[in-house]
């Protein structure tokens, strides 16, 4: 820990240390980008992606609304699938976490299907629902379902027993206990599940759109994943593919940050 090397109370020292860290951290990406730019300029291949060209491509793609449109389309699917998964998984997880009998009987199904990656189910989803939006939503819901169930079960199971006993000594009824003790006590763990689910949901949508693009011959379903594939398959515009990749990463980061912020607002009692 940096606290060990800095005297307590020396705010200036801590600030300087942070400044040094930022400088050190920026050095490597900047150096790599410069190297890329220089070596890339020397290359004879005109398709060679370059940082400068990527920036230019990003500006055009944002300006003509193409990139934001694709992101919005993908996000819409993620949210739809996410909501479906949450509505199914959280009540189920609470029931499983609170009742041993429910858990024992339902857990085999969860554990059997959990190891099957969402992408593996995509061909079935395409078969059942076509190459449009509903298949994509189904894949997101499938992907998000399992982390949500598992974390909700863990949260509901690990309610401190002393809190349940306290509720019992105050004469609370079963349903009231679930509502006022089990749910709030499980909420932090459900929040972890929501964040993981959002992450895998976003990954799944990109994969699903890519695969649909690759296997259904383009199609009209859109989204950022499909856009990447179109740039690859029809024009080999590597700069634009990289812009998409960066956008995928940025959206993943922002989604997690927003969710984390929202969860912190929802749970003002948690110390962090």
């Amino acid at each position: 820990m940096s606290a060990a090397t800095t005297l307590p109370g020396s705010a200036q020292g801590a600030g300087a240390l942070r400044g040094r860290r930022a400088l050190l951290g920026a050095a490597l990406p900047v150096a790599l980008l410069l190297l890329w730019q220089v070596l890339g300029t020397l290359s004879a291949d005109p398709r060679m992606p370059l940082p400068s060209k990527i920036v230019a491509a990003a500006v055009t793609m944002i300006a003509d609304g193409e990139l934001p449109m694709a992101i919005v389309q993908s996000l819409g699917r993620v949210f739809a699938g996410f909501v479906v998964a949450a509505l199914l998984a959280i009540p189920l997880g609470l029931a499983m976490g609170y009742s041993r009998a429910v858990e024992r009987n339902v857990d085999p199904l969860v554990e059997t299907f959990r190891p099957i990656a969402a992408i593996a189910v995509l061909p079935l989803a395409i078969l059942w629902l076509g190459t449009g939006t509903s298949a994509a939503i189904a894949i997101v819901a499938y992907a998000a379902f399992f982390p949500l169930v598992v974390n909700t079960v863990a949260g509901a199971r690990n309610v401190p027993p002393t809190l349940l006993r306290a509720a019992a000594t105050m004469g609370l009824r079963k349903f009231t206990t679930v509502r006022t003790v089990v749910v709030p006590a499980a909420l932090p763990q459900i929040g972890v599940g929501l964040r993981i689910a959002m992450g895998v949901g976003w990954t799944a949508i990109v994969a699903a759109e890519l695969a649909v693009g690759a296997k259904a011959g383009g199609g009209g379903s859109g989204g950022i994943g499909q856009m990447m594939f179109v740039f690859y398959a029809y024009s080999i515009e590597l700069n634009r593919i990289i812009v998409c990749m960066l956008a995928v990463g940025l959206v993943a980061l922002l989604l997690d940050r927003i969710l984390r912020w929202a969860l912190a607002r929802l749970m003002p009692w948690s110390a962090r």
Partner: peptide
Amino acid sequence: AGPGPDRGVMFQDYALFPWQ
């Protein structure tokens, strides 16, 4: 026969609800 509101308990670890 079981816990009831006629007997209040104060627990060693207090058992306060952290979200309240």
